[in-house]
Design a protein around this nucleic acid. Structure first.
Lengths: 343, 343
DNA sequence: TTGAAAGCGCTAACAA
DNA sequence: TTGTTAGCGCTTTCAA
């Protein structure tokens, strides 16, 4: 029923070893004459032989399969995560094109350095870690085990791994310059106050650029909401900044998803966007163009980033040297309908 | 370095067999006292044991990994394929949520029944086949090998497998009724003339519904373009129908992708959509809303279809009975800006 | 240049 | 209730 190497070998009247060497196309110290090579290949073709991936993997042989693990994207919110899907497009585009399979590795996201071995035991050749949870040192763990990884959207040195990221500060600068040019001075920043590297960098960038512009950042313009219900968080924050004695005329959101929540909240509160309130997102996920009004945002070249990350990982897996550093991608400003001069 | 079952067994002073049974949580005819069970579990935890997936797979054990294979989507066009990505969202949503990994299986799409064994030898538990190439009888091959599969968007009986699909004829009917109501009578249908099941069904539906409405379908209104360059095909077809003595006032496209090509072509040819020409798509991929003008189209509940397919496959893998039949999903008409009454 | 044999880490049938 | 043993299909070292 199942054709094995042994069948091929018997058919070609050679040993399993010879058949293995020929069929796996390895350069080995064991020589095989052209004639037997032909015999073996013919036998394999005749019998429709397919090597068993598990058996190969057991010998720690490359399986041509890359793992991809998405950060704090729980199964529940995978539906709303156009960000990850854009990156995934890039990844699949180059990985499948290069002859690799790619598997979505389903692991609880609390996973840390300790569970890196669990990743290894999947037998995959390498991993792409997209926007890892800041609490997780899984990346460092994988690196220590000698498993090739590339980190996407979290250019922290602590991962000890090559990574790909967008220049977050430049993105924030682009957004704020746009707002400043429109005449805004009272600008708030609504974001997740977790330690996710990109989010934190954007927040720091926000403070720095505002300071440069000679405008301070009052703490209530960057409200926190620790431990509050994620679904309601940005509704609450929007309401809170808007009811300040000196409410902001514009809000820079930490991501498109957040920006969309803000626009919804504003609409609920009877505040018109962009007339009474300008909103700028970050990411330019496909959803951004579909909102009402369409979102002005900072575009990350997500597909290109996914492609590059996959290329880097493949190079790593194939034994090439890859600089343990971050490849930075330039963001750009996409002006759509959610920004206007202040009243 | 690598902790194996043997290490755990030694540590807990039991046999590998006992350890295996306890750790894999199987109900087996081999009994284990509560005390040793505890010892084993403690040893595993202490040593941070992780079972090796390859070794398990070699014994034909379920690996909790589903394969997904996209139809005629070559690596090059994965970038433009929002259709497959919408389905993928649904698949990942339920599969990851149910604790399965999912791997994108990279195989040349000419694959036929003969290469089904190659799929099997990946050691995956089952496959989701999305929009298989009509030439390929891979689905039937997999079924013959006893590998669970679910086919998406190709409800042909020949697959001999459960499947999930949209009611294509109903979709076409919805589209044509809309056009008819607007007052159109000269309606063309531009599509791929391959044997892909859904495409063929839509074309047959088109002819049938037009006939019902008492309007014939002249052959030049459903032009073919065998073997011509895919990139140019719909530009050429659009130009050809538009230069007919009696040009159509509306075109039903076989898919959104085609509709978008038609709109581009019309724009190149100086024909205004929807003023001079109405265009209706099929699928409602995310791109549809972004075109200029936004596309009127038939929505398929792609995410729900992906979800249902994954649910069916998981049931199959877990040994439940699943009817070898198609689950039909209802399409709906989404009216946007690419349709208007004829001049 | 070829063949025999020893594992890779696990599961499951069989003895004890 | 426990332990022993024989593979699963492949790669690779070592001897012939």
């Amino acid at each position: 029923m199942v054709v094995t190497l042994e069948d091929v070998a018997r058919h070609a009247k050679v040993s399993k070893a010879a058949a293995s060497v020929v069929l796996s196309g390895k350069i080995s110290n064991i020589g095989v004459s052209e004639a037997t090579r032909q015999r073996i290949q013919k036998a394999a073709a005749d019998l429709r032989y397919h090597p068993n991936a598990m058996a190969r993997g057991l010998n720690r042989v490359r399986l041509d399969t890359l793992g991809v693990s998405f950060g704090p994207m729980t199964p529940e919110n995978v539906l709303s995560d156009s960000y990850s899907f854009a990156v995934l497009k890039g990844i699949l585009n180059v990985a499948l094109g290069a002859g690799y399979n790619v598997t979505h590795f389903n692991k609880p996201w609390r996973d840390t350095r300790q569970s890196a071995a669990g990743f290894r035991d999947q037998g995959l050749d390498g991993f792409l870690i997209v926007a890892p949870d800041p609490q997780s040192d899984i990346a460092a763990g994988l690196t220590e085990l000698g498993i090739p990884i590339v980190v996407i959207s979290s250019a922290s040195d602590e991962h000890r791994a090559p990574s790909v990221d967008v220049d977050n500060v430049m993105g924030v600068r682009l957004a704020l310059e746009h707002l400043l040019e429109l005449g805004h001075r009272r600008i708030a920043h609504l974001t997740f106050h977790n330690q996710q590297f990109d989010m934190r960098t954007r927040m720091e960038g926000f403070r720095a650029v505002m300071a440069e512009a000679g405008i301070g950042t009052p703490p209530e313009y960057v409200p926190k909401c620790w431990g509050c219900d994620v679904e309601r968080a940005f509704y609450l924050q929007t309401r809170s900044v808007l009811s300040l004695p000196e409410p902001p005329t514009a809000i820079l959101a930490g991501s498109d998803w957040i920006a969309l929540r803000i626009i919804e909240a504003a609409s609920d509160l009877g505040v018109r966007v962009p007339k009474q309130l300008s909103v700028v997102g970050f990411d330019d996920t496909p959803d951004a163009a579909l909102s009402e009004p369409p979102l002005t945002t900072i575009r990350q070249p997500l597909i290109a980033m996914g492609q590059e990350a996959a290329r880097m990982l493949i190079a790593l897996v194939e034994g090439e040297h890859v600089e343990n550093a971050t490849r930075w991608f330039e963001p750009s400003l996409i002006v759509r309908g959610s920004t206007a001069p202040p009243l």
